[in-house]
């Protein structure tokens, strides 16, 4: 309390206790909001470990991680986009396009196989970002157009999917299939990218601009945040990460497969939201997104372990999780406002 407060001791102490209690509730609620997905993930993993003897094997864990790698990268970009209050629907298409381009470019070596999809998907991201930030068009519409455009471009390159580009470079191929310490290279790459992403979001001015733009665009602008530049960058990042995910997948499968990846943008959005990021923007964490991605991956894996359950049940269960998370978030937000 300030020195000028003349309130007698007793009520002041009661008020202070009230404030402390409110602050404590606030901290607990915010912890649940941020790390709820992680807690659920731990529970699901424990259940899976107890129920399926094969689940706890190291190989299976490695399989889960490798399978989750592309989605993880896309969800990382999506986390930044959603925190700014936007959405990027183009990433599923960009992921496929990136895979095809990467397979095609692998004839010139490993480096082009990585760079070509990054350049192309990054450019689409720039276009998305500029349209959204400078013309103030709705992100939903702009990226929906990009989704259709990228899909069309992919179809054109692959002659309606009839031409399959095989990965020509053995070195690139071995990146996709090889492993270090028993864990596939793609997973290591994802780990490094996520570490960078976490530092970027939590510990740099850019990261805080991302939160500020999503929290209140007008206030952010008045506080001197470069709103438009921040928006352009998150869509560029999202595009780049989708391209990288495509390249990894091409390396893993040995070709640019044109049918995968449809609807992947929705899985990414689901993972991000399950991870506790607010779809309305302004709050979210990358650890939450990791938990969300792994949760979807583990559920898929469990269903595979059961064996005779159709895999469409995975979507049903993920959908259920998503609904629960959204309800829980709404409840927590309300709890927080009252305290």
């Amino acid at each position: 309390m300030t020195p000028m407060v003349s309130d007698p001791e007793a009520p002041a102490a009661a008020v202070a206790a009230d404030v402390r209690r409110a602050e404590r509730t606030d901290r607990v609620v915010s912890l649940v909001q941020r790390q709820g997905a992680l807690a659920v993930l731990v529970v699901v993993v424990l259940v899976a470990t107890a129920s399926f003897p094969n689940f706890r094997s190291f190989d299976n864990a490695a399989t889960v991680l490798v399978a989750a790698a592309p989605l993880a990268l896309i969800a990382l970009g999506m986390t930044f986009v959603i925190i700014t209050g936007g959405i990027d629907l183009s990433v599923g298409s960009l992921y496929v396009l990136g895979g095809v381009v990467s397979a095609y470019a692998s004839q010139w070596g490993v480096l082009p196989a990585f760079l070509a999809p990054l350049v192309i998907c990054g450019l689409v991201g720039v276009l998305n970002g500029i349209l959204i930030a400078y013309t103030r068009m709705a992100p939903f519409i702009v990226t929906l157009a990009a989704l259709l455009g990228a899909r069309g471009l992919m179809r054109a390159i692959s002659d309606e999917g009839s031409t399959t580009y095989l990965v020509q470079s053995d070195a690139f191929r071995s990146f996709g299939t090889g492993s270090f310490l028993g864990i596939g290279y793609p997973v290591w790459l994802v780990v490094v990218v996520f570490a960078l992403g976490m530092v970027l979001l939590a510990r740099t001015r850019f990261g805080h601009s991302v939160y500020a733009v999503g929290g209140s665009e007008d206030a952010a602008a008045l506080m001197g945040v470069a709103v438009r530049r921040t928006k352009v960058w998150v869509y560029v990042m999202s595009g780049l990460l989708a391209g990288l995910a495509g390249a990894i997948n091409a390396a893993k499968l040995g070709s640019g497969v044109t049918v995968l990846g449809i609807g992947l943008e929705l899985d990414a959005i689901a993972a991000v939201v399950i991870g506790g990021t607010l779809l309305t923007g302004g709050a979210g964490t990358i650890t939450g997104t990791i938990a969300g991605v792994l949760l979807l991956g583990v559920i898929q894996n469990m269903i595979n372990q059961v064996g005779n359950v159709p895999s469409s049940y995975q979507q049903l269960i993920s959908g259920g999780f998503l609904a629960v998370v959204v309800v829980a978030q709404t409840y927590l937000a309300k709890l927080r406002r009252v305290t």
Partner: peptide, 29 residues
Amino acid sequence: YQEVNLIPLMSVAHNLFLGREPRTRLGLL
């Protein structure tokens, strides 16, 4: 401004320092 123009979802400290946060030698906050 008359109506508070800050970011409600960010922490008090982040609002105070947004755009001019103290940084370490590595350029991190």
